[in-house]
């Protein structure tokens, strides 16, 4: 299964649980909500979507099946923003 990791080392500010990620090379700034920030913190090292789902379920004590879809969409969005890449 594919694993993902931060594309590079970005400057990150945390404000009220949200993360503001500064991509100085692309001159872009990206803001993540609280759960997005938690998922972002998991991607410091290679992490599969399955691992992220399990960690989020444990951390937030939820068993909701929609989490799987939420995280897949979130990871796709981070890829589109150029913030993560496939770890190989």
């Amino acid at each position: 299964m594919a694993s993902y990791i931060h594309k590079e080392k970005f400057e990150v500010l945390e404000l009220d649980g949200e993360s503001v990620i500064l991509n100085a090379d692309a001159f872009m700034v990206t803001t993540l909500n609280e759960v997005g920030s938690f998922c972002w913190s998991l991607l410091h090292e290679p992490c599969t979507i399955r691992q992220m789902i399990q960690t989020v379920q444990t951390h937030y004590a939820v068993e909701d099946e929609s989490i799987e879809q939420d995280i897949e969409q979130f990871v796709t969005h981070l890829m589109d923003c150029g913030l993560i890449r496939h770890a190989s």
Binding site: M28, V29, L32, N33
Partner: peptide
């Protein structure tokens, strides 16, 4: 002691605006 779960979201993705 758990935080509330909301779907993880990218709230904003925008270019940096420079004020000179």
């Amino acid at each position: 002691m758990k935080p509330a779960y909301h779907a993880p979201k990218v709230l904003k993705h925008q270019p940096i605006r420079f004020e000179t």
